[in-house]
């Protein structure tokens, strides 16, 4: 069950073109019947598995696939 849900999250992220960072509530929309805290647990597990990662503006935090995104290269690669 939880593996299926995690797969759905990855598919959602891979399916988006031109955008690599998402707010938490983009994920709760994938699982309308699930409590927000349950969705959060899935995301936390995916972070631990190094499949997704956080991105922060300092005031807000977003989620995206590990290593993806235009700012990623400039930040880590310098």
């Amino acid at each position: 069950m939880s593996e299926d849900a995690k797969k759905q999250i990855i598919e959602f992220l891979e399916g988006k073109k031109g955008k690599t960072k998402f707010y938490f509530n983009d994920f709760t929309k994938i699982f309308p019947d699930m409590k927000a805290r349950e969705v959060k647990k899935l995301l936390t597990e995916l972070v631990k598995e190094q499949k997704i990662e956080y991105w922060s503006s300092g005031s807000t935090t977003m989620y995206g696939l590990a290593g993806a995104g235009k700012q990623h290269a400039t930040e880590e690669g310098e």
Binding site: G18, K19, T20, K21, S57, G69, K70, Q71, T74
Partner: peptide, 12 residues
């Protein structure tokens, strides 16, 4: 377009 994701800039 090389440095930013346009939808994020719009939403910001």
């Amino acid at each position: 377009d090389n440095l930013c994701e346009i939808p994020l800039a719009v939403a910001a």
